[in-house]
Design a protein around this nucleic acid. Structure first.
Lengths: 376, 376
DNA sequence: TTGTATGCGTTATCAT
DNA sequence: ATGATAACGCATACAA
């Protein structure tokens, strides 16, 4: 029962503080501060901005006037004048997803420490939305942007941002042909470790469920070009296929590239499990995919790890509360975000130095979901 | 092994697009568009802005010129002139937490549909950080803000925003004495349903683990004033205590208000479970708390629901992949975010109408973690 | 319909 | 050390 209601005077049992209403935007300007302090705007600006020179007496009067009036600078005006802002754009697929949520949080923390704010834009992995987001950020005159690019092959909008002097830092994903600072985890190495574990336990029919092919998945039958997938996913898949190629003839047999989201992963996993020669292990590319994979296995009536072993390609917060606990590949998400923002500020400070790759290590965290050797 | 390395010329096996560099910010201005179109700035502005009047011929020439030059408006300049922006501030405890992550995402979606962007600021439940965030947003001249207030009792900074003509919408939490539009879920009703279920199954020693007392928890021994807790948590606790008061003498006996975060919840739960008369059920206030609760129960060697039944006060994405699946109180998170943004735009359109409360329904989702009746 | 002229609040140059 | 003055790019009242 939704019950919108109007409450006018009484809130939480307490009378409204009426005298706050209708007090029009004070919006004290620099001019008013200067007048009250009895100096020119230029002097007031210098005193407040702490640049140029101003006598101690003048500075004191200005600061006192500013405090008395409750002066707060008008940032859009300042930004107009300066030609740039203190805002950093963050462009990701979905701020509500665990990986991007955490990275964005840590970007935000690092930004705050550097005196910057962030503007977050979601793309849902749609290139068109990403283009719009980047252009919006350029119009906003952001100081820089951190982008988890939806397309590995089309970075023209990002190159344009760079051309306009706006630093672009690629997070989690590389873009072909774009010379930008990048920060990502060594997902290939992590996946290789996980595969080594599974193969060492005797698994050969190992499934892989991933949304690396973008929002719409990978059309069955279409040629698969791993190099065109989002690089983080592509790196994992490449490692998966390489490991599998060592021990089986047809490594792509159980590779399922689905649209992104838990439900798509669920469906893809059900399909894998319905095959007569079903996989004995499944690699889930990330936390969200893992949810679908686990539910599909349970609904199909299989046990983990007895019937199907499971590994997740990154670390869900809930990895230790499933039964059995989930084996994962962990990546240092907070460090990725911090590094991304650091690269932005570095490039701001030195726009011409060669681009940097920051590649952070991943580790394989063995838990009970890859618990034993293969039975059947 | 972190291995930062510098790559200069070759990226992903493809040569750098060199001619993109050093192409200085084109930053085409309205003036240039007007010149190229052979009209005045005013005419160009009208044609581009689609207001006032302009002949079809002039408009065409202006639009053509704008397209040819790649004109993009300078938003800070526009905002300076207009005195406001198209940005909505979102102030929450932690964008990386599931509830705020999802709400923020849905606020963002609704904002985009309304032609607005969001600027996200985290407070970690610290009032001081919230004040700074609100002031920053005011300086940025945001069009409005959505705030999940850290303090139920101190909303002066929010009142100031209102006084400056900036709409403030309270999300998830009410603030005493602040007459603002609000949107929140009926958490009390949800908690009551969950408690009814537990009590109906015979549970009497029901624990409650919550971070509603803010970032530092509730000092043991200090008087507990439920009315001063964050309202969403307070509503749940009130319902919990009311239900318990019907059947036991000392309803506050198992109420554990811990600092926020999984680890604090873990510790609090371990303490509850170590008591000689340990609880037979535990209510976890939210998803993050639930993680700590479940791990604590497992580590203490108890089974769910056999030894301890568990309910979570909101719906974690992973509620169906635990063993057993977790009983939850669900709230319509996406709808909350949408409603919040809608209230912002409504108040923008009509600054004087009485404030609105949007209270959305919660439901109790029974799963196996509250599976049976009480044994011991 | 169109152009002129002015202002938004800030920063910064350049005389004094 | 200080103040007058000019920008920044855009929007708009008003005159033509």
């Amino acid at each position: 029962m939704e019950r919108p209601r109007n409450i006018s005077r009484v809130v939480d049992g307490v009378d409204r503080v009426d005298d706050l209403v209708d007090r029009r935007p004070p919006s004290v300007t620099l001019t008013e501060v200067a007048q009250r302090a009895g100096v020119s705007r230029a002097t007031a600006a210098r005193a407040l901005g702490g640049y140029g020179s101003a006598s101690a007496a003048a500075r004191d009067r200005v600061l006192a006037a500013a405090a008395a009036l409750g002066y707060r600078p008008n940032l859009p005006a300042r930004n107009t004048r300066n030609g740039t802002t203190t805002t950093v754009g963050v462009v990701v697929a979905d701020i509500a997803s665990p990986f991007f949520g955490q990275s964005t949080r840590s970007i935000s923390d690092a930004a705050k420490a550097a005196g910057l704010e962030i503007m977050v834009l979601n793309t849902d992995e749609e290139l068109e939305a990403e283009r719009a987001a980047v252009h919006l950020l350029l119009d906003q005159r952001v100081a820089g942007m951190v982008v988890a690019a939806a397309s590995r092959t089309d970075g023209r909008h990002l190159a344009q941002a760079q051309a306009e002097g706006v630093p672009v830092v690629l997070l989690d994903r590389r873009v072909i042909g774009l010379d930008a600072d990048r920060v990502y985890a060594d997902n290939g190495a992590g996946a290789a470790l996980a595969m080594a574990e599974l193969i060492g336990q005797g698994h050969r029919r190992i499934g892989y469920v991933s949304s690396a092919a973008g929002p719409h998945g990978h059309p069955p039958g279409a040629p698969l070009v791993v190099d065109e997938l989002v690089s983080s996913g592509g790196d994992r898949i490449r490692a998966y296929l390489a490991a599998l190629a060592e021990v089986v003839d047809e490594p792509t047999r159980y590779l399922a590239l689905c649209p992104f989201g838990e439900e798509a992963a669920y469906a893809a996993t059900r399909e894998l499990l319905a095959r007569p020669d079903r996989p004995t292990a499944v690699f889930a590319s990330d936390s969200v995919i893992a949810l679908g994979v686990l539910r599909a296995i349970a609904d199909a009536g299989f046990a983990v790890p007895g019937d199907v072993a499971v590994v997740a390609g990154d670390e869900p917060a809930w990895s230790r509360v499933t039964t059995p606990p989930l084996s994962t590949v962990t990546q240092p998400v907070a460090a990725l975000g911090r590094a991304a923002l650091e690269l932005v500020t570095r490039r701001l400070a030195d726009p011409t130095s060669p681009c940097t790759d920051v590649v952070l290590p991943t580790t394989f965290q063995a838990r009970a979901s890859t618990g034993g050797s293969v039975g059947a």
